[in-house]
Design a protein around this nucleic acid. Structure first.
Length: 536
RNA sequence: GGGGGCGUAGCUCAGUCGGUAGAGCAUCGGCCUUUUAAGCCGCUAGUCGUAGGUUCGAGUCCUACCGCCCUCACCA
């Protein structure tokens, strides 16, 4: 679309002869004012008019109003409108005045800008509900008071963005109101907004036209404001813990750091196939080698896998590495960043999630993997026969699985759903995390934990492996085994370890999931502004 | 990929047994200077997701396809 518009700007003639319409538009006028959508659709209207009848009719009526505004000498797409007050600010000032119902201040003025979301026309007095980023406010525009602006006000539609200035007052019914005497139309909306009461509720349309979702459903906007606060708090917390924020490549010639299928892309000038990162891990560890002792990155990662309420192909993770620490320190980091996020929201550590309440009070529960397996599956982790019996009971086809894989299948089937309250599960079977440092006293155990909340994995951490020889061996073992992990040996990463990486704790926390939990959102798509949708 | 559900006016939704496509909001035309989803009167509004099929007749039944949601599988 954008491309078409740009082409049109250069060669308007290609869109055919000028067509005179009811509203008096032609491509020349459109060109002059730079309203290309208008020029194009007007051109097409002779063919497409019948196609989408109502929508076209509604738009044409609004376009006619645009033209009428121009005839009145009013710019329907006005520019700078400064020194405005937010609705919340005006409400605060209004409250401070302590006016009675029906009263109007003689001196206190307000100036707002926002979208018209409700309109109550009573002849020569119009009540509008204006929505800005902070809330809704009523403005009243009377013919007597606005004088010359009245003809413009008669052309207002739901969805228009306007600016209003006037005295503050309280109506008979007790509603704080700006009694406008100055008025500006800032953007004429030519597409009708959704129904005023229900808003936009079709899930597909909400995702595809998120801008409509945002302006018509204030709760949605609130979720994304909270998302911003969560991420800001995580960043502040880490800065406070003397971390440095870095940015590492999203385009990677060799991908790694997780077991996941990548997206592929291509650099034309270099004629080089590249991958979108599945994790920033191997780059962040290189920074530890370089002497950056505490680093983090809030990174967009891309995994070419299934989509679900908990998985979007691109998602945001905070990944961090801390020299001379271990996974126990990382548990404190998870708790610390979550607490910081909660403090930045509302300070409430007991939060609803669906039907349950989750208590984020520190410290979170810390449970050994093997203990949980015994508790919920009733089997000892090293009792292969018992584990396989249990697997059979659960309907898991385990004949060809390695012992540790069966253990993990049983664990996932029996334990994870019970991990509702925040829990660190630690000391995983080494066989299912091959690139991980082993427990010094038990080589079958990996120094790893996962943080679970509401049965969902929130984070994953390790006491990092810094032995280059073991790392190289593990890499090779991985390569020979699974097809999708470490498709290419990352020699440079091993080289970095050969120079010497300090012992460290490393952690990744899914920020989309953290936001889901803290905002009581049931789908990851409700905390991602533009979740992936197939083109229509 | 398997299973289930959904797709009707710009939006939110009805649509009976297969028999002339409906309502509310919005729009348009009236009345209206204290309304709160304002109200009242009148009007307009449709490729029933797409393409086939069955039938005298399909929004409705059948098939395929497209899109979305849920779920399982895959997957940290």
């Amino acid at each position: 679309m954008r491309r078409r518009l740009r082409d049109a700007r250069i060669r308007p003639g290609q869109y055919g002869p000028i067509i005179e319409t009811a509203s008096g538009y032609d491509t020349e006028t459109a060109t002059k004012y730079g309203i290309w959508e208008l020029a194009l659709s007007t051109d097409n209207s002779s063919e497409k008019n019948t196609e989408k009848g109502t929508e076209n009719k509604l738009k044409q009526e609004r376009r006619a109003k645009v033209e009428k505004l121009r005839e009145l000498g009013v710019d329907p797409y006005g520019g700078r409108y400064t020194d405005i007050d937010h609705v919340t600010t005006i409400r605060g000032r209004g409250d401070a005045l302590g006016m009675d119902a029906g009263e109007m201040s003689e001196t206190e003025r307000g100036r707002v800008a926002g979208r018209v979301v409700l309109q109550r026309v009573m002849g020569n007095l119009v009540f509008l509900t204006i929505r800005d980023e902070t809330g809704d406010l009523q403005v009243a525009l009377s013919k007597k008071r606005v004088k010359d602006h009245w003809p413009t006000i008669k052309l207002l539609d739901l969805g228009d963005i306007i600016g209003v200035e006037g005295l503050l007052g309280v109506t008979k019914t007790g509603e704080l109101t700006i009694w406008g005497d100055d008025f500006r139309i800032l953007s004429k909306s030519i597409h009708p907004p959704p129904e005023k009461w229900h808003g936009l509720s079709d899930v597909e349309l909400r995702y595809r036209h998120r801008y409509v979702d945002l302006f018509s459903n204030p709760d949605v906007r609130e979720v994304f404001k909270q998302r911003s606060k969560v991420i800001a708090a995580v960043r502040d917390y880490l800065h406070g813990a003397e971390y440095i924020e870095v940015e590492t490549p999203t385009l990677q010639a060799i991908y790694g750091g997780a077991a996941a299928k990548p997206f592929t892309t291509h650099h034309n000038a270099l004629d080089l196939d590249l991958f979108l990162r599945i994790s920033p891990e191997l780059y962040l560890k290189r920074l530890l080698v370089g002497g950056m002792e505490r680093v983090f990155e809030i990174s967009r990662n891309f995994r070419n896998e299934g989509i679900s309420t908990k998985h979007n192909p691109e998602f945001t993770m905070v990944e961090l590495y801390e020299a001379y620490a271990d996974y126990n320190v990382m548990m404190e980091r998870v708790e610390g960043m979550t607490a910081a996020a909660i403090e930045n929201l509302d300070g409430n550590y007991k939060r609803p999630y669906g039907e349950t309440t989750i208590d984020y009070t520190i410290p979170w529960s810390r449970r050994k993997y093997a203990d949980l397996l015994l508790e919920y599956a009733g089997v000892a982790i090293d009792d292969d026969a018992a584990v396989r019996d249990k697997a059979t009971q659960l309907g898991i086809n385990h004949a060809k699985m390695a012992p540790a894989v069966v253990v993990n299948e049983v664990f996932e089937a029996t334990v994870e759903d019970h991990l509702i309250q925040p829990t660190f599960v630690y000391d995983y079977p080494a066989a299912i995390c091959p690139l991980t440092r082993r427990h010094p006293e038990n080589p079958d155990i990996a120094l790893r934990f996962e943080a679970f909340v509401n049965g969902m994995e929130l984070g994953n951490a390790y006491t990092e492996l810094n032995d280059p020889l073991v790392q190289e061996e593990n890499f090779k073992a991985q390569l020979s085994g699974q097809e999708e992990t470490m498709a290419i040996m990352d020699d440079d990463f091993v080289l970095a370890l050969e120079y010497g990486m300090p012992p460290a704790g490393g952690l990744g926390v899914g920020l989309d999931r953290l936001v889901m939990l803290l905002t009581n959102s049931q789908s990851i798509r409700d905390v991602i502004l533009f979740p992936l949708q197939r083109p229509r």
